[in-house]
Amino acid sequence: MMPEYIKNIKKTLLSDNWATLHKVTFDYRDSKGNWEPQVREVYDRGNGAAVLLYNKASKTVILTEQFRMPTYFNGNDSGMLIEVCAGLLDDYDPETAIKKEIEEETGYHLSDVEKVMDLYMSPGSVTETVHLFIAGYTVKDKLSEGGGVATENEDILVHEYAFAKAYTMIQTGEIKDAKTVILLQYLQLQGILS
């Protein structure tokens, strides 16, 4: 059912390459009751999942680093971004998808992950919901070096940081990825590595 404050929705496909980009026109009723025409572009790349791996015994976390063209395009000199393990759901449920990503990207095989929350990361133009998780790991869980899937052109570096160092990297600007900041702050607020 359509909300009472939006009507006359029309979508025009602008691009269907990496994901889909639509131009959407609609009439919106504002808080004063006035109807006004609106135009937006909506980018749909599917929903995703992200996870922060942590080791309680060593008080460490696993983060990844990879080239992200949008950050380079927006002034990040190297385009490299330090972030939590993440990926699109494709045709999987969030938990199955993130366990697959953990193994592909980090080389760890984990059977348990803990759901934290679901968030829209850029709701002004992107449809994506990101399902956020945390998961404990040990040295015994490491199966491979990770690094991503070669056929998907992934070239992912895997880093293990002391939690205190990773948390400080937020303040120094070395970590600028929102989902990573949120999950590091979640660990801090919950006292999981205290």
Rank of each mutant, 00 (worst) to 15 (best):
N34V: 15
A86E: 12
V84F: 02
I62P: 00
K59A: 13
A19W: 09
L81R: 05
L52C: 12
G79T: 07
N74Q: 11
V51L: 06
F73H: 07
N34C: 12
I62Q: 00
Y54Q: 04
F73G: 02
A49Q: 03
L110R: 02
S78K: 06
N34P: 03
R40E: 08
T60K: 09
K56S: 09
E101F: 04
V84M: 02
K100V: 09
S31Y: 08
A49F: 00
M69K: 09
S78V: 06
S111L: 05
R68W: 10
A86C: 08
P37S: 14
P37Q: 10
D30A: 10
K32V: 11
I102H: 01
K100A: 06
E65M: 09
G46C: 03
W18V: 13
E101A: 09
I98C: 03
N17K: 15
M80G: 01
D30I: 13
C85E: 09
K23P: 03
D30E: 12
Y108C: 06
P94H: 05
W18T: 14
F73M: 13
R45V: 13
T64Q: 02
V42A: 08
K7M: 15
R40Q: 10
S58G: 01
S58C: 04
N8F: 10
V39D: 04
T12M: 04
S111Y: 12
S15Y: 06
S58P: 03
E36D: 15
F26W: 05
Q66N: 12
C85Q: 00
L63N: 03
L53E: 01
Q66C: 04
S15I: 10
S58K: 15
K7L: 15
Y43S: 08
S78P: 00
N55F: 07
E114S: 13
K59R: 15
L89A: 04
S58F: 04
D30S: 11
Q66Y: 12
D91W: 04
V113P: 02
K7G: 08
H109K: 14
T20A: 08
H109N: 12
S31K: 12
N76F: 00
T106P: 01
T64D: 06
Y28I: 09
W35M: 11
L53T: 05
E104I: 08
Y28Q: 11
L110M: 06
D27G: 10
K99M: 02
N8R: 14
E114L: 09
K56W: 00
E103P: 01
L14D: 05
G33N: 13
G46P: 02
M80F: 14
N76S: 10
K23I: 07
V61E: 01
L13I: 15
S15E: 11
I98T: 01
W35R: 14
L53V: 07
I62K: 00
Y54W: 08
T96A: 10
H109S: 14
Y43N: 06
I82L: 09
N34W: 10
S111I: 11
K100H: 11
K10S: 15
N34F: 15
Y43P: 00
A19Y: 10
Y108H: 07
N8H: 12
A49D: 03
K100G: 04
R29A: 07
K59Q: 15
Y92S: 07
L53W: 01
Y54L: 11
P94A: 07
Y92W: 05
T20K: 12
G87Y: 02
